[in-house]
Amino acid sequence: MLLQSIWFFLWGLLWAVFFMTDGFDFGVGTLYPFLGKSDRDKRVMINSIGPLWDGNEVWLLTAGGVTFAAFPKVYATMFSSLYTPLMLILFSLIFRGVAFEFRGKIENAAWKKLWDTFIFLGSFLPALLFGVAFANIFQGIPFDGDGLYHGNTLKLLNPYGLLGGILFVLLFLQHGANWLNIKTTGELRQKSIAVSRKIWLVLVPVAVIFLIASYFATDLYANYFKTPVLFLIILVTVIALFATRFFIAKQSFFKAWFASALTIAGAIFFGIAGLFPRLFPSSMDKEASLTAFNASSSPLTLKIMLGVVLVVIPIVIIYQAWAYNFFKDPVTQEDLDMDEAY
């Protein structure tokens, strides 16, 4: 029981870290057509995440891999049920990745424009679809005891699902704008600061609506009323959200970025805590819901993987933190002139 509960928590944590890291890449990519008016500004934006996005994306593979290893039944049922949205996400990520690499390789306006479009779509669509997917998981997914899915992709676009999508997009926009505040200079930076303030004004009401809507559309709050201490998660998230704005006003952009990262982690854990012990609830049949206890791997696999994760993940965090620190300064002309720059 304890082992499975630990794994449930780790599962949530890995998703949270993925959204905290690749989240600002999604945000920068979504802001890209709006803030990047000149070719130089566009390149500054791409190069602001250039050294880091690839490492960030691996958190998705790790979250996926860990779902496979620790909860194979969840991995199987979740990804086959959400077949079409997941494929859309993966194709979007493919396009985003090659767009960074391909864009600067041929000096031609139409060529660049093509990949500009894919940088936007490859960032916006995953942000939206991950939000839609998670909100639907919070509500429950129509599948039966055999893991057979009875819904269709369009039904995922229900009001609460869409609200989740919009919330994710806004969270990542905030996080991405906060990153640009750190990594840009001059006029682009002024624009980015202005945008980061505006996004916040939209994000706050959407977050509030989402918290209220969750009460009516899901049973996430049941755990909260049972264990009121969980409300601290919501409290911390709200504080982080307000701290984001506070630090932007104080021009402490690193702190603002950490605050938006914490907001994202809080949003994920708001859902995770409400789901516990369910990883993939069924809306058709409560008994069919996949939980940390009925869908996990054998104790041996869980123990081995726990050992691996507890040793390796801290090391990953250390060298990724080192890499972040390495590239924390604003993108300069010298950076753009480098042969290898995007």
């Binding site: 690839d54 991995y75 890499a323």
Partner: peptide, 26 residues
Amino acid sequence: VGDVFGSLLAIEASVTFFLESTFIGI
């Protein structure tokens, strides 16, 4: 086979692919 096979993929991502992807940026 997730009990056996899944762990190998998870180790691949967390132990080695992270290293490769982070250091390529550097």
